[in-house]
Design a protein around this nucleic acid. Structure first.
Length: 218
DNA sequence: CGGCCGATCCACT
DNA sequence: GTGGATCGGCCGA
């Protein structure tokens, strides 16, 4: 077929140059791309339908806002690395680091459609009911892929990396929507840093940031 | 389907 | 000590 697909028919792996750009350019370009993770158990691949940009030290919503710490070490590293963090006492979430080394922007992978290894993905999810929910939400996506803190810092652009990102069919630009991020305090309508594909069932539900203390019993 | 709430522990103050 | 880039179960409509 076309030269683009190559002789093997496998979509090309995204390179460090792809990620070494401003995060607001990289984030929408990741929509439609697939993330794949190889383990001894097999391969799971997810086609991304929803992502969020975090602009490093300039961004109050970013983990790197208060500078370099042990946790944010990878965010300040080279582009194309995977930043995995643990949250709410039980969930892992994953990001792809953007921009040159020394800066700390990253794209949170929020949701996608499992396009390979569906049985394996389901076996990793305890409460999965429908294919739609397998990777709908950042922690669900990370779980479905079998990614945890052990992959923090892995290079997704290395040829032999267990984790890779591959170019997908470029979505119709009309379908690319943007808006405020989910669950980020102080992220008003002036921060269109969440990107998603309109009409995709796997896009997670929007929720504004809520303080549990304020929302719950006083 | 939507709202509410507990789980569970790590990073940072 | 505080609260979080979340999820899933349970409840009522």
């Amino acid at each position: 077929m076309s030269a683009r697909a190559g002789s093997s028919g496998v979509a090309p792996q995204l390179t460090a140059a792809f990620f070494d750009r401003p995060v607001l350019e990289v984030a929408p370009d990741l929509l439609g791309a697939t993330v794949e993770h190889r383990t001894a158990a097999g391969i799971v691949a997810v086609r991304l339908t929803e992502v969020e940009a975090y602009d490093g030290e300039n961004d109050p919503g970013s983990h790197a806002f208060r500078g370099r710490t042990p946790r944010t070490r990878v965010m300040f590293g080279p582009p194309g690395r995977v930043y995995v963090y643990f949250t709410y006492g039980m969930h892992w979430c994953m990001n792809l680091v953007c921009g040159p080394e020394g800066t700390a922007s990253a794209v949170l992978l929020r949701a996608g459609e499992v396009v390979a290894g569906e049985d394996l993905a389901r076996s990793r999810r305890t409460a999965s009911r429908s294919p739609r929910d397998l990777a709908r939400g950042p922690a669900r996506l990370t779980t479905a892929l079998g990614v945890d803190g052990g992959l923090d810092g892995a290079d997704a652009t290395a040829r032999r990396s267990p984790l890779a990102v591959r170019a997908g069919v470029r979505p119709d630009p009309v379908l690319v929507r943007h808006g405020p991020r989910v669950g980020v305090a102080g992220d008003g309508a002036g921060h269109p840093w969440r990107f998603w594909l309109d009409g995709e069932l796997t896009v997670s539900a929007y929720r504004a940031a809520v303080s549990r203390r304020r929302a719950g019993r006083s």
